[in-house]
Design a protein around this nucleic acid. Sequence first.
DNA 1: AACACGACCTGGTAGC
DNA 2: TGCTACCAGGTCGTGT
Length: 262
Amino acid sequence: MPELPEVEAVCRKLRESAEGRRILACTVHRCAKPSVARRVTGRQIVSVERLGKNILARLDGGETLHVHLRMTGNLYVEKRTPPPGEARVWMTLSGGRVLVFEDTRALGVVEVLRPPEMEKLRRAIGPEPLSEDFTVERLLAATRGSRQPAKLFLLDQRRVAGIGNIYAVEALYKAGIHPARLAGKLSAPRVRRLHAAIVSVLSDAVQSACIAYSGPGRFVEAETFPLAVYGRDQQPCLRCRSRIRRIVQGGRSTYFCPGCQR
DNA sequence: AACACGACCTGGTAGC
DNA sequence: TGCTACCAGGTCGTGT
């Protein structure tokens, strides 16, 4: 599910449905931090913010509810309490709705952060690719210090925030850059193309994710966004008809077109 | 520093 | 049908 676009969709929805509400009760189940319940109960959700793939709900009193969806997490507001076993955490909000955190694989994170911990998290996350902070110059400077393959460079949250496996693959395809090419050796024009590709792929995906998520559905499915290469091993490239290939980098699948990615 | 790899978890699916 | 093996959108810790 969740890379930047999907997390953004979740946050926008939460701003409508949870911002300003008070947490009246909290039940924690299958959660590494049982103290979460005690620390959020009675607090008001002042604002909801996205930091890369992290969801930050600022609480009155100065602490922050931090949620990371990882692979299978989902966070949404619903009318009723979830059936037992379906959610890891749920919170009754003022106004009668329930904030639910679901997470099949239980890899996700729900915790409460104090200001210093919050600052530490902020320092670990690079520029937001859809903000003015993310300039070609900044991306170029970041690549200069790197000896990583471009694909792994993009997955590093300290370099650019919020890019995951799918959109790293899609951005490299759009930019015509081979995923194994070293980030530090990309020419300035190629970095410029990569920058444009990241911004374009992510803004399109945010649009799609928000539309997909605006309905009654609580799930975000990336299939709503037309993927050009991801998952298309052995299929013809949409641009040059070469066969898309799958390789493994850092233990994860990369798809690319040997014809148009150099 | 950079990389590989396993760990964390569960569930879906392809192949036998 | 039932078993096995592998795969999955993320990150962290350990070892080389």
